[in-house]
Design a protein around this nucleic acid. Structure first.
Length: 564
RNA sequence: GCGCCUGUAGCUCAGUGGAUAGAGCAUCCGCCUUCUAAGCGGACGGUCGCACGUUCGAGUCGUGCCAGGCGCGCCA
């Protein structure tokens, strides 16, 4: 926040210097305020003078001096500013300006960290989108955690977010599922020659078949399905199995605290005629051709390395065609921003979907929709990799993880690394309630603050009904205290950046640093002392640390316990 | 062979083109009569995969290599 104010001061100084005739450039580069690594270089630094050296034909230091002389610090943010090194301007912020930040946090409360970047515009995030052929596995878990945090980040930065889950309730995989359940209904085992090729062998198939034979009723999404119970009715089995597995997945997602606003069925694209309409539109725009009995889309017109088949020789469409129809539908629903969170193994769809949308010539931007592709997750247990095999049924489900290590640690671990990095999920580490486990380290900071407040309350100290004066805040003067405030002040820009880059891990790093600074401060500084004035000031600082911890943890969907 | 991602301390990973590259773990040495030791302080640890290039300045940008992962079907 202070950083932003500083940037606008420098911008004004640039304009003022030009008005005075000492700078000549018609336009200036964007003013960036850096955070120096070395504390001797101040709280902030600006390199604008170096960037202007060439166009202005002056030395960087000369320009820096000029800017300083035109700087009008109306809010008294600065204690001191100086030109250093090759032409940096170093800014030293007045302690009173830092102390004032605490009041801003206090006033904003749970909204501190939010901003209005999105300005209420409509955004949609599609994530998880698992087909209902089995329980959610670890990969879906990472997608669910990343997608959910992206939704929370976009909401915090002012976007009107719709969360969507897309799945297929027809097609080869679902047919395979129905056949597997049917076989179980007829007591056919996977090693039986009558067992379907590529059938799903997991234990859950037995549960589905038992529920089907028992004529159970299942609620999923927004409807319910009652089993017919007839092993020969493959269509009834299909409907029931899909509903049963959707319900299973929803229960897992609920346990993970991940919610969706909308479920979208691939089959609806066909039944509503959207697939045919999309294909007709692309043909009309002359981006297709017939070759060897198939219809091809000239994706090479839009950056692909070779053209792709849209309609096979058997008349059916390839998988990316309904995807294009689906995204056209998203566009028509008015989402100016669409984010698709998927596993990186779906990478090849990105170019094809975008190419299909460009071929429609609807004015859809080239980079729309945006993609966040997360890399693979490797699960470690007891120092060994847990192999994942869906068909054999030997894999760790998301539910297993949540049950074993808890929701908070599971969510935290999934977003701890940037999506581009492969993730090693160490189950033993995630389970540990020790200093090795970063999620406990952060939650412990929050619980500790609560504990200090309890202690203060017992000694008759409270700040809940008091307004703290600027005079009193001046007592927060140690390097540790100012450093903490400085870090608290950085939450809004961290959230904005994490949202802009789709990088939830930035919140994790922010929290780890904040918790570390607090633990260090706690160890060194007694908060509740005989000096009531000082104690109140410190409690006020802790109050804001607590608020910021809560806000940032909430962005991750991780709880902030009062006691541990 | 082609496309995408990754390569930074022994390990796991941060690092918006800026000044002396950071954190946690591991190893070693310290700290509870004191608001939670699930904590804190210190030490050790680096040719940022390699080579060129752009720049006043490169871990960061470009090109070419090397290594690992994923994907390369008229499968989804």
């Amino acid at each position: 926040m202070i950083r932003q104010k500083l940037a606008s001061l420098v911008e004004k100084a640039l304009l003022s210097a030009r008005t005075a005739g000492v700078l000549r450039s018609e336009s200036f580069p964007l003013v960036l305020i850096d955070l120096p690594a070395n504390e001797l270089h101040g709280d902030f630094a600006c390199n604008i003078a170096m960037q202007l050296a060439r166009p202005e034909r002056k030395s960087p230091r000369q320009i820096a001096d000029l800017l300083l002389s035109h700087l009008e610090d109306s809010e008294a943010l600065l204690q001191h500013a100086e030109v250093a090194g090759p032409g940096f301007i170093n800014f030293f912020i007045a302690p009173s300006a830092w102390q004032g930040c605490l009041k801003i946090i206090d006033a904003a409360g749970s909204a501190f960290g939010n901003c209005a970047t999105g300005n209420g515009r409509k955004a949609q995030v599609e994530f998880v989108s698992a087909n209902p052929t089995g329980p959610l596995h670890i990969g879906h878990g990472r997608g669910a955690a990343i997608g959910d945090v992206i939704c929370r980040l976009l909401t915090a930065t002012g976007w009107d977010v719709t969360r969507e889950f897309y799945y297929n309730d027809a097609g080869a995989q679902i047919n395979n599922l129905a056949l597997s359940v049917q076989s179980r209904c007829m007591n056919i085992e996977p090693d039986d020659p009558r067992w379907p090729a590529d059938g799903y062998q997991g234990e859950y198939i037995k549960e589905v078949s038992a529920a089907y034979l028992a004529k159970e009723t299942v609620h999923s999404d927004d409807h319910q399905v009652t089993a017919v119970g007839d092993p020969n009715d493959i269509e009834a089995i299909r409907r029931f199995a899909v509903a049963w597995l959707r319900r299973e997945q929803d229960q897992d997602l609920k346990a993970f605290d991940v919610k969706f606003d909308n479920y979208f069925l691939e089959s609806s694209l066909y039944s509503d005629g959207k697939v045919d309409a999309t294909v007709a539109a692309i043909i009309a725009k002359r981006h297709t051709y017939q070759h060897e009995g198939a219809l091809w889309l000239r994706t090479t017109d839009f950056g692909d390395d070779k053209d792709r088949v849209m309609r096979k020789t058997d008349g059916s469409y390839t998988y990316f065609v309904p995807d294009v129809a689906y995204h056209l539908d998203k566009w028509q629903r008015g989402f100016v921003r669409v984010v698709n969170e998927q596993g990186a193994d779906h990478h090849s769809t990105v170019t094809r979907v975008r190419a299909g949308l460009q071929a429609l010539d609807e004015g859809i931007p080239k980079g729309w929709p945006e993609y966040v592709l997360h890399q693979m997750v490797t699960v470690m247990r007891g120092g060994e990799e847990v192999k994942i095999s869906k068909r054999a049924g030997s894999y760790v489900t998301l539910r297993d993880l949540i049950d074993e290590v808890g929701r908070d640690a599971t969510r935290f671990f999934f977003v701890m690394r940037k999506p581009d990095s492969q993730l090693v999920f160490d189950i033993d580490l995630a389970k540990q309630q020790s200093l090795d486990n970063p999620v406990y380290y952060i939650q412990y900071a929050h619980a500790r603050i609560c504990s200090v407040f309890e202690n203060a309350h017992e000694k008759g100290l409270s700040i809940s009904d008091k307004s703290i004066s600027s005079e009193q805040l001046r007592l927060l003067e140690t390097p540790e205290e100012l450093r903490l405030i400085k870090w608290l002040d950085r939450l809004p820009e961290t959230v904005d950046e994490a949202a802009r880059e789709f990088e939830p891990h930035k919140i994790v790093y922010y929290l780890t640093e904040l918790a570390g600074q607090f633990h260090s401060y706690y160890n060194k500084t007694k908060v509740v002392t005989d000096n009531a004035e000082l104690s109140e000031a410190r409690l006020y600082l802790l109050q804001q640390i607590k608020q910021v911890l809560r806000n940032a943890l909430a962005l991750l969907g991780v709880s902030a316990p009062e006691r541990m």
